[in-house]
Simulated scan of single mutants.
Amino acid sequence: MKKGFSIQKTILAAGTLFTILIFTSCLKTNDNNNSNTPVAGLMAFNLSPDKSAIGIALSGNNLTNTALAYTNYTGGYLSIYPGTRSVVAYNAGSGTSFTASDFTFNEGKYYSLFVVGADTVYRNVVVNDGLDSLPSASGKAYIRYINAIPDSSQPLVTVSDNANSVISQNAPFASVSGFVAINPGNANIAINNNNNIQATRSITLEERKIYTILFAGIPGAADTARSVKIRYIENGKLKEDSAAQQGVSVTAPRSVKIN
């Protein structure tokens, strides 16, 4: 049986509180308005510190109508056509593409696209998030990371709760870890190369919620807006009913700043 979950994100925009829910159902896609179409889910991030506003296109169709500023993302999983698609990131002002790749999206699966890099060297990092394989065991949250800091070093990434270390590994640029179970409550996160990449942060995790940690910024940057920081988002929340079917619902495309 497939695991069921809801995707949930609460944001504050223009003084109004929005709750974005992506839950189990049969949906339309963001590629057009046809209903009852097989879909996959895609969440996209701009983690390129020298790209102030980017667009994302899949096989020539825009993923959103809103440009993603640096450290912004789509705010949730958007439904797309499955199959092998060309994934293009382009400068929102000029429309000039700066990185492109092909990826195969499978029906009913959830994916993340991280646009990373700097100084003319960029790449699309697309991963299958595997949300349907996470057990909704009582008492656990789930966490992973991406190292989007453009640097040749392999800094040490550590993540621990109040009792245990759950991640301790060197992370090359553009690497994405798998989700690991962690106790809810305080999570202590650090990245360190004993030189120009050193950052720590503590966040509070909730039971059955799924989190992605984003290490981003330029090592040694004088501009604090682009210095190395630890950010995070909530991918969603596992449902207690593990027998529920999975799926996504359409959410309004938008650009949401990462925590």
Rank of each mutant, 00 (worst) to 15 (best):
G55V: 01
A244S: 11
S242P: 08
P49H: 02
D119T: 09
L47H: 00
L113P: 03
L42I: 11
T120C: 09
K109P: 09
G95E: 03
V88C: 04
K109N: 11
T74E: 08
G117E: 01
T212F: 06
N72A: 13
V159L: 11
K3R: 15
A221K: 04
A69W: 00
K51Y: 01
K51T: 01
G220Y: 01
I197V: 15
R231I: 01
I230A: 07
A199W: 02
Q198W: 13
S35Q: 12
A148N: 05
V126D: 07
N162G: 14
A118K: 12
I213W: 00
N192M: 14
Q169H: 01
V116S: 09
G75V: 09
G55E: 00
I11T: 12
S152M: 14
V88D: 05
K3E: 10
I167H: 06
Q154L: 12
D241E: 10
T224D: 07
T29D: 11
N124K: 06
Y110I: 10
R201T: 06
K9F: 06
D151L: 14
Q198L: 15
S177G: 14
Y77R: 08
S35H: 08
L47R: 02
D132N: 14
Y111R: 05
P135Q: 07
A92W: 04
V180R: 10
G83F: 00
P82W: 01
G93N: 14
Y73V: 08
F103P: 07
S59P: 05
P150K: 07
L21T: 08
A216P: 00
N65K: 04
S86G: 06
S86N: 09
N65I: 02
T84F: 11
K239C: 12
Y142A: 13
V166R: 03
Q154M: 13
S59T: 07
T120S: 14
D223E: 00
V228D: 00
T204I: 14
N186G: 11
G60F: 01
V125A: 05
T104Y: 11
V180S: 09
Y110L: 15
I258R: 07
P219V: 03
R254L: 14
Y142G: 13
I54K: 02
S255H: 01
A148V: 05
L42H: 02
S133V: 12
I191F: 09
N194M: 15
N106S: 15
L238N: 00
G93A: 15
P219W: 00
V157M: 07
L42M: 06
G93E: 11
D151V: 13
S168I: 05
S152W: 07
A221E: 01
N259D: 04
I11K: 12
F18K: 15
M43K: 11
G247C: 08
A67H: 03
G55C: 02
E206D: 12
N62M: 10
A174K: 05
N36E: 13
R201L: 14
Y81H: 08
E206Q: 15
A69C: 08
V256M: 02
F98I: 03
A187Y: 05
P49F: 07
A148K: 06
T251Q: 14
M1E: 04
V125E: 05
K140V: 13
S136W: 03
V127H: 00
A243S: 15
R201C: 10
E206M: 15
N72L: 10
V157C: 09
V166G: 01
